[in-house]
Amino acid sequence: MAPPQETDTFVRLAKAGDVAAFERLVALHYPFILKTAFRWLGHRSDAEDVTQSVCMRLATILPGFDGRASFTSWLYRVTLNAVRDFQRSQQRRRQMASRVALIAPEKMEPDQENRMRVEDIWRRVRELPEKQRDAVLLVYGEHLSHAEAARIMQCKEVTVSWHIHKARKSLRDLL
């Protein structure tokens, strides 16, 4: 990702109509958007769809970026909103079927078992209520502090802690 000063320059120029600056801004932040979408959705093709949607949408919403938050925090929010929109449209189109690979436990290697357990936990996290899921993914998936997560979620730090507490309780029951 680009240094904040470089991003600020590209944002300013893009808002003024500089197409090359807009293209550079999108290119610099594309991996960040993709990684964030993938963390929430868990499927690369879905994350790529959301990433493309965010990049196209940036052209129309960038003028609304007022700089009160950092560009990255603002982009998190834009990406999370796109993820939620995608999830809602997917739910309307079809019921998501569980995609758990059936592997005979006796043939499973220790690494495979750990990887499957981690994948199962993240799958369960994605099933949590929206605020709990967002808090867990921001803090544990993106390795942000509670304060950074609170800025992105537009709530108080203590609220993020509460959502994580509730998520842990729910996951304990599920797992």
Score class of each variant (00 low, 15 high):
residue 81 N to G: 10
residue 84 R to Y: 13
residue 85 D to W: 11
residue 86 F to K: 12
residue 86 F to A: 05
residue 87 Q to M: 07
residue 88 R to C: 06
residue 88 R to Y: 06
residue 88 R to L: 09
residue 89 S to H: 08
residue 90 Q to P: 07
residue 91 Q to F: 02
residue 93 R to G: 14
residue 94 R to A: 05
residue 95 Q to D: 11
residue 95 Q to F: 10
residue 96 M to Y: 11
residue 97 A to Q: 10
residue 98 S to Q: 11
residue 101 A to P: 06
residue 101 A to K: 04
residue 102 L to I: 15
residue 103 I to F: 03
residue 104 A to T: 12
residue 105 P to C: 04
residue 111 D to S: 15
residue 113 E to Y: 07
residue 115 R to S: 08
residue 116 M to F: 06
residue 118 V to C: 09
residue 122 W to R: 08
residue 123 R to F: 09
residue 124 R to F: 09
residue 126 R to I: 04
residue 127 E to P: 09
residue 127 E to V: 04
residue 130 E to R: 06
residue 131 K to I: 14
residue 132 Q to A: 00
residue 132 Q to W: 06
residue 133 R to C: 04
residue 134 D to Y: 01
residue 136 V to A: 01
residue 138 L to R: 09
residue 139 V to I: 05
residue 139 V to F: 07
residue 140 Y to A: 11
residue 142 E to W: 02
residue 143 H to C: 04
residue 143 H to D: 09
residue 143 H to W: 14
residue 144 L to T: 05
residue 144 L to G: 02
residue 145 S to M: 03
residue 146 H to K: 12
residue 146 H to W: 13
residue 147 A to T: 08
residue 149 A to H: 04
residue 149 A to Y: 02
residue 151 R to G: 12
residue 152 I to N: 06
residue 153 M to G: 00
residue 157 E to A: 12
residue 160 V to P: 01
residue 160 V to S: 01
residue 161 S to G: 06
residue 163 H to K: 03
residue 165 H to G: 02
residue 167 A to V: 03
residue 168 R to H: 02
residue 168 R to Y: 10
residue 169 K to Y: 11
residue 171 L to Y: 02
residue 171 L to T: 00
